[in-house]
Every structure is written in structure tokens, then in C-alpha cells.
């Protein structure tokens, strides 16, 4: 079939040029074409947050975005952010606090939590954490351990001198 579009994007630091059908959601490109199965599909309607990835540094729902719209973008998924160490402190805290049960929501929640910690001037309160992750459904944990883990990382970051902002 010739009705495909050529796109070039950077996924987890790797430049990828490929042909995609116009209606292919970004999540299908990530999961099926690239085999990055850490990003999960929960609702395909932008509601549950299981499909959260970073697009040019901002969190986005990969179920709502088309692969074609990601042309020229930089995409980061849980796999890449694990390898770079960007999520390490959160992953460690989630592990110690048992903030993961089935794990289906977890990559999305980690990305949402990282976004909150990166944006926040001051360590967020528990209520602010709860608000921020309310676009990410978790059916297993009851959320409290997730809030505990994020709050702990926020607290220890605040205790550290701020790193120079990267260029």
C-alpha cells in the first residue's frame, strides 16, 4: 500500500526513519514497530495514562497522538529513561515503597511523577502529588504507596543543592 507517510523521529536517542500509515497511533509505532512494550495501552481514549511517553520533553498520551504527528520529534519512553538513569531515584523509591503491584500503570505513573518533580520549584505536597497523578489510573495500589514514593524522592531532591540546568 502506498498511502503511507515517511517520518523521521528520535526515539530514546536513536534516529528512526520509517513509513507509517496515516492513522497509526504513536503507541502502535512504539510497541509494535519498535518493540518498546514498556508503554501500555489501557483505554485508547486519553483517559488512563498507561500510554504516557515524553514528546520533546513534555508528557503526552501516545494513544491519542498519531505516529505521523511525531515526525521530527524526540520521543522518550520508560525504556530510554531507565537506561539514561533519569527515572532511577523514582524507580528505587517505588520499589522500596511497594508502589507497584501489577505494574501495568507503572511506566505511565513514573513519567508523570518525573514531570512533576522536574517542574516543581518546591517539593510538592502530598495533595499536589495526588492531583498531578490523577490522570494516571491505578487499579491495584490504592495510590498511597505511590504518593509515599514520589514524596520521598521530592524530599531528597529538595535536600540537595539544585544542579545547573542542562543546556
Amino acid at each position: 500500500m502506498s498511502d503511507t507517510l515517511s517520518i523521521t523521529l528520535t526515539v530514546n536517542g536513536e534516529r528512526i526513519s520509517t513509513q507509517v500509515p496515516p492513522r497509526l497511533p504513536l503507541i502502535d509505532l512504539l510497541r509494535e514497530t519498535l518493540g518498546l512494550t514498556g508503554t501500555h495501552l489501557g483505554c485508547a481514549q486519553g483517559v488512563c495514562g498507561a500510554c504516557t511517553v515524553r514528546v520533546d520533553g513534555e508528557t503526552a498520551r501516545s494513544c491519542l497522538m498519531l505516529a505521523a504527528q511525531a515526525d521530527g520529534c524526540q520521543i522518550d519512553t520508560v525504556e530510554g529513561l531507565t537506561d539514561s538513569g533519569a527515572l532511577a531515584a523514582l524507580q528505587d523509591a517505588f520499589h522500596r515503597h511497594n508502589a507497584v503491584q501489577c505494574g501495568y500503570c507503572t511506566p505511565g505513573i513514573l513519567l508523570a511523577a518525573a514531570e512533576l518533580l522536574d517542574q516543581a520549584e518546591n517539593p510538592p505536597t502530598r495533595d499536589e502529588i495526588r492531583d498531578h497523578i490523577s490522570g494516571n489510573y491505578c487499579r491495584c495500589t490504592g495510590y498511597q504507596s505511590v504518593v509515599d514514593a514520589i514524596a520521598e524522592v521530592a524530599g531528597s531532591r529538595a535536600a540537595r543543592p539544585k544542579p545547573e540546568t542542562a543546556p
Binding site: 512494550t37 501500555h40 519512553t77 531507565t82 517505588f94 520499589h95 511497594n98 513514573l110
Partner: peptide, 23 residues
């Protein structure tokens, strides 16, 4: 003892093995 789950690390790193991940 409240031992952390060894198998949770995979899930935290996006290395879960859910049915739809399998091809």
C-alpha cells in the same frame, strides 16, 4: 519482614511481560 518484591524491578523498568507484549 517487609522485603521489597524482587520481580517488581522488571515492571518498574518497562520490562514487564504482558500477553500483548508477546509477538
Amino acid at each position: 519482614r517487609s522485603v521489597p518484591r524482587p520481580n517488581a524491578r522488571r515492571l518498574l523498568q518497562g520490562r514487564g511481560r504482558f500477553v500483548d507484549d508477546l509477538v
